[in-house]
Design a protein around this nucleic acid. Structure first.
Lengths: 202, 202
DNA sequence: TTCACTGGTCGTCAGTTGACGAATAAATAT
DNA sequence: ATATTTATTCGTCAACTGACGACCAGTGAA
C-alpha cells in the first residue's frame, strides 16, 4: 500500500482506537487493528507521542467549522433559529463520542497538545453568541469579556454536558438531540435579559 | 501503625493518587507516596482492583449528602434561595477536582463500579428540583419523567460543566463560584415557564 | 524464656510495553 | 535481467508492572 494511503489509514484507525482505549492504548493492539505489524507503525510515526499528536490535531482541531461564525452572524434570521441550527450541527459534528473521549482523555492527562487553539475558538463562539442575542434584543452587555463568556457558557456548557451524558455516561438517551437543543436554547433566551441585568448590577 | 489506621491512610492517599494519575497509576508509585513498601499494599487489599473499588465507593458515592433532599423541599424558603444554596454546596463538596477526575476516569474506562447508585441519586435530585420550582410557580409539569429530568439538566448540567471547565480544562477561573451559580440559577428560573410550555406543547 | 502474632521489607517472577536492528519481499528503475 | 528503492515482518532488548513467597523485627502473653 502506498505511503500516504497507509499513513492516513493508520491515523484513522488510531483515532478510533485511542478514543475507545485511552491514550495509553498499546501500539501492538493498534497495529493488529490496522492489520499490520507493530513495527510498521514506526515507519510512519517516530514515536507513539507523535502519532498521538497527529491524531489530536486531525480529530480534535479539525472538528471546528469556520462557517459557524458566518451563520451565527447572519442577521436576516432570528437569533433563536440561528442558535438552534448552530447547536444542532455542533452537537452532531463536533460533540461526538470520538471527539469527546479523545478530548477528555487528553485533558485528564494534562496533555497540552494544542492548548490554546480550542479555547480561543470556543471563546470566539461564546462572544459571538452573546453579541448576536444582545443585538437582537437591543440589550447593552457588560464590558468584562470573562463575564460575558461565562454567561454564554450557561447555554454552551449545558449542551456540552448533554453530550457528555450521552456519550460518556451513556444516559439521557430517551429524547431526541434536536428536542434537547431547542429546550436549552429556549431557556437561555428566556432568561437572557434577567441574567444580563443581574451581571450589570454587580 | 495499627491496621485500620494504616488502611485508612492508604485509601486516602490512593484516592488523591488515582485522581491525579488515572486508574492505571502504578502501585509502586502509590506505595512510595504512602511511605511504605509496595508489598505492604497487598496486605490490605488483595488486588489493585479491590483497592480501586474501595476508593470509588468512599470518594464518589460518599460525596452525596442526604440533607440536600430535605433542604431542597423546605417550602418556607423561596425556591431561588434553595437552589442557590444547594448548588453552592454541591459545587464545593461534590464537584471537586478529585471527585470529577475519579468519576471521569471511571466513566471513560467503562468501569461499572457502582453504576446505578449515582444515576439514581442524581435522578432524584433532578426530579426534586423540578417539583419544587413547579410548585412555587403553580405550574403543571408533563408526565414523562425522562422529559422532566432533561429539563432539570439544563441547570444541573450547566453547573456540572462549569465544574469540569474549572477542574479538568483549567478554565473559567476568573469569576467566583457563587457568582456563577447565581447566574445559572437565575437563567433557569427565568426560562422555566417557557421551557415547560414548550415541552407540554409537544 | 519462649512462642506467636502483627506490621513491615526484600527480591523476584511472569507478562507487558515502546522501540528498533536486521532481514525479507515487492515494486520500480535502469 | 539487474540494481535500487520501498513496504513490511521477525525477533529482541530494556524497562516496567501487578502479584506474591519468604523473611525479619518488635510486642505482648504464657
Amino acid at each position: 500500500m502506498p505511503f500516504n494511503e497507509r499513513r492516513a489509514q493508520i491515523l484513522d484507525v488510531a483515532s478510533e482506537f485511542f478514543a475507545e482505549n485511552g491514550l495509553a492504548g498499546q501500539t501492538r493492539q493498534l497495529a493488529e487493528k490496522c492489520g499490520i505489524s507493530q513495527r510498521l507503525l514506526y515507519r510512519f510515526f517516530p514515536t507513539k507521542e507523535d502519532l498521538l499528536k497527529e491524531v489530536y490535531d486531525q480529530e480534535i482541531l479539525g472538528a471546528f467549522k469556520a462557517v459557524w461564525f458566518v451563520e451565527l452572524q447572519d442577521r436576516t434570521r432570528p437569533v433563536s433559529e440561528r442558535l438552534d441550527a448552530f447547536y444542532r450541527d455542533y452537537l452532531r459534528s463536533t460533540l461526538t463520542r470520538k471527539w469527546l473521549r479523545l478530548f477528555l482523555y487528553a485533558s485528564l492527562a494534562e496533555a497540552k497538545m494544542a492548548p490554546d487553539y480550542i479555547s480561543a475558538i470556543v471563546m470566539q463562539l461564546l462572544e459571538t453568541v452573546m453579541r448576536e442575542v444582545a443585538h437582537e434584543r437591543g440589550v447593552d452587555l457588560p464590558e468584562d469579556p470573562a463575564l460575558l463568556r461565562e454567561m454564554a457558557w450557561t447555554l454552551h456548557g449545558a449542551i456540552s454536558h448533554y453530550a457528555i451524558r450521552r456519550h460518556i455516561y451513556q444516559s439521557s438517551l430517551s429524547l431526541s438531540e434536536d428536542q434537547v437543543v431547542s429546550m436549552h436554547v429556549r431557556v437561555f433566551l428566556a432568561g437572557f435579559e434577567d441574567m444580563v441585568k443581574m451581571c450589570v448590577g454587580r
